[in-house]
């Protein structure tokens, strides 16, 4: 049973993405295969060099870097959304795989879920 967790909301301003991350980590805790897919404004989670000191929140960039340690299988980002938000390989955090978020991709997972 493989699960794809989709994040289509930007990182700061709502908790929905963090809930998604929590969901993915919980699946990994029980050794359930889980991957994350960032689409739309959600790809801005993956921008390098986020400095959250001024907004008194934890950096999702740093939180996300724990994903491989916890056993999250892949961090995927929608190619066209990345283009739209001006993100290329040099501005993305390491370990992100660019994909086309379409029906064929979702068919590879038993369950796809958004949070929020």
């Amino acid at each position: 049973m493989s699960t794809l967790i989709m994040i289509d909301q930007p990182p700061y301003g709502s908790w929905s993405g963090r809930e998604a991350l929590d969901m993915a980590f919980s699946l990994a805790a029980f050794d359930q295969p889980a991957s994350l897919l960032f689409t739309g404004a959600g790809v801005t989670w993956l921008k390098r060099a986020q400095d959250t000191a001024g907004i008194a929140q934890k950096s999702v960039e740093r939180n996300l870097s724990a994903a491989p340690i916890f056993g999250i299988e892949a961090i995927l980002a929608d190619r066209s959304a990345c283009q739209k938000y001006g993100l290329d390989e040099s501005s993305l955090i390491t370990g992100v795989t660019l994909v086309d978020a379409n029906g064929a991709l979702l068919e590879q997972y038993d369950h796809t879920a958004f949070a929020g």
Partner: peptide
């Protein structure tokens, strides 16, 4: 050092064990 790097404590006991094992 995990907290410094990832700005979080391992969220659960299982993930704590995983993180220690990994390192």
């Amino acid at each position: 050092s995990f907290y410094k790097e990832h700005e979080m404590s391992p969220p659960s006991n299982r993930l704590f064990v995983k993180a220690v094992k990994e390192t």
